[in-house]
Design a protein around this nucleic acid. Structure first.
Length: 707
DNA sequence: TAAAACCTCGTTTTT
DNA sequence: CGAGGTTTTA
């Protein structure tokens, strides 16, 4: 392998194979290269002794894992095939698949997703007479998850408890945990915590795993949580302590999900005498972009200061653009994009970044209007769709009859005459007789408070599920599913429930997509494909099957949140909504905003740009039907003025107003006509009269010349 | 049990 | 303003 293409610190990171090592890899510093080279170097170094299967590389997402594995195999050939590259959660799930029975769970466990978790919490709250409308179960879940990750077990009430939510979390924690176990499920936190317990409590397993994984590597270490570092510490508790973690504290943007910057800031607390390597040369951006990013992040107090530098001296100045309205901001972005594309920048080298998903809408509208292809990288909304969740609940129940959450979800979907009253009574029986809900349903006929009609319907349902459990054992997953959905009339039901034609089509389509994904899974996995393995994969990896590529291979502009942009790079980046309350985002009511994290988020956004960066904002914004004035982001002030070219689109313009603008004036008049309404503009702000100007090429000035 | 009115609430999100 | 869920009513 050729190490000469690496710079000195990179080479050191690759060659320091023994003992704990912290690699501080600034944005664009060639982190991925270092990791892959390091692994290949390990394989080269000890051809006889070290096997690929002795290496474990942990990544943040499945996507990253797949890509890394591909790169490894590409570089090192088939011998890299046995390097285990996966996420912490996937690793944990794998451990549990073999040994969870030692902790008292059934071998065929299912993984509870957020919806399942929330449902369990909700039930636990109700049992304790806590109103789940006054108190949001998901907030309770967040607290319980934090407690779990911090290693806290359910315990009696201590003194000096915090607010109501802390109290509720405390009251519900144990019930939640028991319910989860009783229904043979684990949550995402358990995928980390239970493996740690296995290693701690079972000498033989600790021996097995520490013997096998002699070299550990963790990517995106800044976003690991307590449970993950616990697991890592245990895996590294054998004779070898070859733990290499790679990350950038300045890019920790998931602390709201439990990530601990502390993990990277005090790595040496966990692994004494850890070596530290800093990668500070940036291969991505121009010095101008980098200087701006450095200036913004420098204000964070607690960090491992890095001085990022680039060989790409100078560069196009950063365009700081203010538009009169959100629409104009979007129009400007769309116009600039079409200009850049016309000037030869491929569309897929351009990204629009924003803090919250909702910000994409105006941009999408304008891009459509101008006929620019775009792609929105959206979260997991596919699996949030009701139909998809329903179908998956059927799978879960069939794979694991104890799964009460799944059972309650679909017992009456489509309606089969088993209502809440019946189920409430069955749940009561189940609790009293200490059996699962499924068990109680099997006894339905014996319960006096159940009308015979109800008991009959329950029995029919049980038989249906049993029958399909058999079918799934032998038949093709996708085929059996089609038959199942046909038999229960799910599609007809979905159709009749829907108001509009379009949304009905969408629903049917997403059901088909589930079947397609099932089919693809079956094809990939071959004979070992089962409902349970499918479900496990699905819970851990919510990526959709890659959609059919457009034949022409037309390139599209990417729209996504800052969070989704981590690790990616584009020649041109539009960072929109550079306003207070949006960037930095205003925290949830009550909860203080985490300014340091917002700053890191801003840093991540800026450092995505290779050549050209636009920071745009709007002077007014329509919020809940009302126009409100906006303050420029404080982060803009941190960027040295000499790096910036300011552009104000609120300048006089020539030409008649467009229809849209006429409408704007009309609505403005409307607003002033209506007296007494609180509508209109906040005191002290200038109404945006005369505001509409087009951000056409004429107004944009000197932006040309991106190579 | 199922459609119609009603009300509430607006982060980030992968595992 | 609009999506989503919940309560109300038939």
């Amino acid at each position: 392998m050729d190490l000469s293409k690496l710079n000195p610190p990179q080479r050191e990171a690759v060659l320091t194979t023994e003992g704990p090592l912290l690699v501080l890899a600034g944005a664009g510093s060639g982190k991925t290269r270092v990791i892959t080279h390091r692994i290949v170097h390990l394989l080269d170094k000890r051809p006889g002794g070290l096997l690929a299967r002795n290496i474990l590389a942990v990544t943040f997402t499945n996507k990253a894992a797949t890509e890394m594995k591909e790169r490894l195999v590409h570089m090192a050939g088939p011998r890299a095939q046995n390097v285990l590259v996966c996420t912490f959660h996937a690793f944990g799930a794998e451990m549990l698949r073999e040994d969870i029975y030692r902790l008292g769970w059934p071998k065929k466990f299912t993984i509870a997703d957020q919806g399942d978790q929330a449902a369990i919490i909700k039930r636990a709250m109700r049992e304790r007479r806590i109103d789940d409308r006054t108190f949001d179960p998901r907030k309770v879940l967040t607290l319980i998850s934090k407690a779990k990750n911090a290693g806290k077990t359910p315990e009696p009430l201590g003194e000096g408890m915090g607010d109501d939510y802390d109290l509720i979390a405390h009251m519900v924690y144990e019930a939640y945990q028991l319910a989860l176990k009783a229904q043979g499920s684990v949550d995402f936190d358990d995928l980390l915590i239970l493996p740690s317990r296995l290693l701690r409590e079972h000498e033989d397993l600790r021996h097995k795993y520490t013997q096998r994984f002699r070299y550990l590597l963790v990517d995106e270490f800044q976003d690991t949580n307590q449970a993950q570092i616990d697991l890592l510490t245990l895996l590294a508790s054998g004779e070898t302590r070859n733990v290499c973690v790679v990350g950038d504290d300045d890019q920790c943007i998931y602390s709201w999900r439990g990530a601990e910057v502390r993990n990277i800031l005090s790595f040496d607390k966990y692994f004494a005498e850890a070596k530290e390597v800093r990668l500070e040369q940036n291969y991505r951006s121009t010095q101008v972009v980098l200087d701006a990013a450095n200036a913004v992040i420098a204000k964070n107090p607690e960090r491992k200061a890095k001085k990022m530098w680039s060989e790409r001296k100078g560069g196009e100045r950063i365009k700081v653009v203010s538009a009169p309205t959100e629409e104009e901001e979007a129009r400007y972005v769309a116009t600039e994009i079409s200009r850049l594309v016309a000037g030869g920048i491929p569309a897929d080298e351009i990204a629009v970044l924003y803090r919250v998903n909702g910000q994409s809408h105006p941009i999408e509208e304008m891009l459509r209007e101008k006929g620019i292809r775009y792609e929105v990288v959206s979260g997991s909304e596919f699996f949030d769709r009701r139909e998809v969740k329903d179908v998956i609940a059927y799978f879960k129940l069939i794979a694991n009859p104890r799964d009460e959450t799944a059972l309650l979800r679909i017992i009456n979907v489509p309606a089969r005459g088993i209502g809440d009253v019946t189920m409430e009574r069955l749940v009561a029986h189940a609790r009293r007789d200490s059996v699962t809900l499924w068990g109680a349903m099997e006894r339905a006929e014996g319960y006096e408070d159940l009308p015979k009609g109800a008991a009959e319907k329950v029995k029919d349902f049980l038989q249906l599920v049993e029958r399909y459990r058999q079918s799934y054992e032998t038949g093709k997953l996708a085929e059996v599913t089609r038959k199942l959905l046909e038999e229960i009339g799910y599609k007809d039901d979905a159709k009749s429930l829907i108001t509009s034609q379009a949304s009905a089509d969408r629903k049917l389509k997403s059901i088909d997509q589930v079947i397609n994904s099932l089919e693809a899974f079956e094809k990939r996995e071959g004979p070992k494909a089962s409902l349970l393995t499918y479900l496990n994969r699905l819970s851990l990896d919510t990526r959709q099957e890659e959609e059919e590529e457009v034949p022409g291979g037309h390139k599209a502009v990417t729209l996504m949140t800052l969070h989704a942009s981590k690790g990616l790079e584009y020649r041109v980046v539009f960072f929109i909504g550079m306003e207070e309350e949006l960037m930095p985002h205003k925290g949830m009511q009550g909860e203080a905003q985490n300014l340091e994290e917002e700053r890191r988020l801003c840093y991540v956004g800026i450092t995505r740009a290779k050549e050209l960066l636009y920071l745009t904002r709007s002077v007014t914004r329509v919020k809940r039907g009302k126009e409100v004035p906006r303050t420029p982001s404080r982060f803009l002030e941190d960027i040295p003025p000499e790096l910036v070219e300011v552009l104000d689109l609120d300048a006089p313009r020539k030409g008649p107003p467009t229809d849209q603008e006429k409408n704007f004036f009309a609505s403005l008049k409307e607003r002033f006509k209506a007296p007494g309404t609180s509508g209109g503009v906040a005191p002290g702000s200038k109404p945006a009269v005369g505001a509409p100007t087009t951000g056409g090429p004429a107004a944009t000035g000197t932006t040309g010349g991106v190579r």
